[in-house]
Simulated scan of single mutants.
Amino acid sequence: MTSGPSVRFLVPEGVDDPRRVSGGNVYDRHIRDGLRARGCAVTTQEAAAAAAAASALRGAPDGALVLVDGLVGGWAPAALEEHASRLRLVLLAHMVVAAFPDATDAAADAERRALAVARAVVVTSHWTADELARRGLADPSRITVAVPGVDRADAVTPLGENDLLCVGVLAPHKGQDTLLDALARLPTADWTCAVVGSGESFPDFAAIIADRAAAFDGRVRIAGVLDDDALAEAYQRSALLVAPSRVESWGMAIGEARARGLPVIGAETGGIPEALTGGGGLVVPPDDPAALAGALEAWMSDPPLRARLRHEALTARATLPTWSDAVARVADALEAA
């Protein structure tokens, strides 16, 4: 689709706001900009809640092609159902809500309804595609996998062997509490860990993480949201990314790390093993502080292991998916719809 149709892209409010950093927003921006570069006339419409989403759908002309971020679709399943017969709806599912252990029945039902009326579904990992099919939420024939791409970046130049980095919104499903439990088990104090991400979505959890981090006497730094330059610098000067998620469809931070040849220790959950294809990472069971501590201790105490993971991570950079690949896959799904 080198010269494509007009597309309305319904996204969460603040998709371009640097203070609202999220993997979903980063993905949406790359897809929007990439589709425009391919010749599609993309109109972005932001929604903060169900009423705004319903209004945007109501204002779309009959036959319009509408790409809906899954978060927005989950807010307004009734509006999607109302307009499905006159609009060509494509749902972009960044996650599987039903896979979250704390998912409410209402949230899972909203996801089911939104997926049911979409002509096509775009997902960001093969794990997500398999999970949706396994749960009977979407027929595999309607699903297109468009894994996140990476931007070219310089190889990392870490300040020290044991400078750790954890990037992601402070939230129970991201597992920062598991990371702190693991760090508390380490026999050596010769490490630092920067925890980067917004605490606005889950303020109670974020407050607990900040309080617990203070007990590490400055070795754990809660950095909050970093702008693009500061975040790039954090990746560049770190020795290891830790991704302790309990649920993860892919892991945009893992892609950012791998673009720089930064090794990763991640939880063996969701799309993380898929994101680490090609080497340069270790996986441990999710929600298992002892296993994570063991992997971190191995990293810190085993120079040959560090050398191997660094070599694999640097080598894998040449094989990583690109954003052009992702945009092409989304374009194919839109064309099919």
Rank of each mutant, 00 (worst) to 15 (best):
A318D: 00
A210F: 02
L320T: 07
V90F: 05
V156P: 05
R36K: 13
A307D: 15
R260H: 05
L226F: 07
C40P: 03
A295H: 09
R329I: 06
R32M: 14
R86F: 04
P304N: 13
T178R: 09
L334G: 11
I31T: 15
V264D: 02
R20P: 04
D325Y: 02
P148I: 02
A76E: 01
L159Y: 02
W191V: 10
V225A: 04
A76W: 07
E111F: 09
T269K: 03
E297Y: 00
T319Q: 02
V225L: 15
L164H: 07
D332Q: 12
S249K: 01
A47V: 08
P244R: 13
T188Y: 00
A114V: 00
P203L: 13
H94F: 09
Y235R: 03
A98H: 08
A336P: 13
P263H: 00
V21P: 08
A239S: 15
T144Y: 05
R36W: 09
Q236P: 06
R20D: 06
H83I: 02
G70M: 06
G280E: 12
D69P: 13
A243N: 00
L132M: 05
G224Y: 06
F202Q: 11
D177I: 05
W75H: 07
P101N: 03
R185L: 11
S238N: 11
W127F: 05
A293P: 07
D28I: 11
A84T: 10
G4E: 01
I31S: 13
A259E: 10
F205P: 09
D16N: 14
A333D: 14
A49Y: 12
G278D: 02
A49R: 07
L91D: 10
G63C: 05
D102W: 11
D190K: 02
A259N: 01
L10G: 08
V195L: 15
I272F: 07
A50R: 10
L186F: 07
A253H: 03
L179G: 07
V15E: 08
D287Y: 03
A316H: 10
L241T: 04
S249T: 08
V196K: 00
R260S: 09
L35W: 14
H30W: 03
M252A: 10
V117A: 04
V242Q: 04
I265V: 14
E131A: 12
Q45L: 15
A78H: 08
Y27T: 05
F205I: 04
R260D: 05
L276T: 02
V121I: 15
D33Y: 08
V11H: 12
A290D: 15
M300S: 15
F100S: 11
R86M: 05
D228V: 13
E268R: 14
V156T: 12
G149P: 02
W127E: 04
E274D: 03
T2P: 00
A51T: 15
R310F: 00
P12G: 13
V68C: 01
T322P: 03
A214K: 00
G149K: 04
A120L: 08
D69I: 10
A48S: 13
G271T: 05
G251Q: 10
R36N: 09
T192P: 02
L320G: 12
M95S: 06
S324R: 12
V242G: 09
V123H: 03
A138F: 00
E200D: 15
T319N: 11
A47R: 04
